[in-house]
Design a protein around this nucleic acid. Structure first.
Lengths: 202, 202
DNA sequence: ATGACTTATGGCACACTGTGACAGAAAGGT
DNA sequence: ACCTTTCTGTCACAGTGTGCCATAAGTCAT
């Protein structure tokens, strides 16, 4: 990994950190790209080369999460019920958060604090989740050997799973620590599994 | 209802119709507010007095739907399980679409065609749905006599319900008629109810 | 009708996001 | 050192969305 790439990664994280701090300090809307760029000493134009939009900053976490979910899904046994596999994938994301560096953890918590009670941003996040769902539906349909366009159950399985994820992540309001979030998420997963009829996902 | 209000309503619908047609014709992104305003002979400034944003055009349906759902929820017996009530609320929305005027139906179908396969717009719609969910959670929590901040099950009930709604609405790709959509939605509702353990929503 | 009142509209200036194009700087390879 | 590739800043520009103010249209008296 050359100097170039290392520098880029450093810049990317610097932008992200500066932005999160500014957002938490003065609010998302009232922070401009110009301010963020100023804080890390780059031009606004360059900002848009690192993040395609201001919104993209808030969605940074999703890209990573989606990757982990798809990988985990791939590694689960073929004959495992799809919803169970998805819940494992969800736990894998959680585990990744738990085992990440302090810097990453802090970013994650800052983002959570930022989202908390800001419908506009939660909306963005949910919308991004819908995008992820499309990929998951394809993976699930492939596993079940059906056409994703025709099979409603594949859609429902993924939709229910991402509901559980969303409830688990959003529910714990106020400042929370990673262990607290983790516990809460585990509770939600259990609750979801208890709510569904055994074998519903075939 | 005075002349003023009638005129306003007429303008609002004229804007909506012109916008939907332009969107379907040349795409959402490449249609400007200026064009839409031009098509109905108002100034761009006035456009923003009818719709707070260009995106708002796409969300027009939600406002109505949310209203119906909350009303229906209110009219259901107190002791009915919450998820069942939500499914009834969903059927009420559907019924409203079925029994609306040809103009309204056409708008609905155009909107569906517009959303179809446009992640950006589906995202908007989903994000708006998250907003609705917050209101529904409050209503459901009130019915169940719990604090919405503490009770995960209330969140899960609403989340599952809105999943079912989303799957039902999105799933039928391609041009569809209202009866087809309706049938599909009924299927989804049944599927969702079959998937859940009886009494899970207490 | 005439006038007074309220509300809707248009026009203007403006801030902000996001993009294309180009020139110069930085890094990589030889 | 050189040349190539990639990154960066600057500039110009299109588009969305808002505040402000003057004017036009509607409402409601008398």
């Amino acid at each position: 990994m050359g100097l170039r790439e290392r520098k880029k990664e450093k810049t990317r994280l610097a932008i992200l950190d500066a932005a999160l701090d500014l957002f938490l300090e003065q609010g998302y809307e009232s922070t401009t790209v110009e301010q963020i760029a100023g804080a890390v000493d780059i031009s606004p134009r360059t900002f848009f080369r690192y993040f395609t939009s201001k919104d993209h900053l808030v969605l940074w976490f999703h890209d990573h999460g989606e990757e982990i979910m798809l990988e985990t899904l791939d590694s689960r046994p073929e004959d495992e019920p799809a919803f169970t596999s998805l819940m494992h994938a969800l736990r894998a994301v959680l585990h990744d958060v738990e085992s990440s560096t302090p810097e990453e953890t802090e970013r994650f918590l800052k983002l959570r604090r930022l989202l908390d009670g800001q419908p506009r941003l939660v909306g963005l996040s949910v919308a991004r989740g819908a995008e992820t769902e499309r990929h998951l539906v394809e993976a699930v349909a492939a596993r079940r050997g059906v056409d994703p366009d025709e099979d409603q159950l594949s859609h429902l399985i993924v939709a229910f799973a991402s509901c559980a994820m969303r409830v688990g992540f959003e529910c714990p309001r106020r400042d929370a620590t990673v262990p607290e979030i983790s516990r809460r998420m585990a509770e939600t997963i259990e609750l979801a599994e208890r709510s569904l009829r055994p074998g519903w996902d075939r």
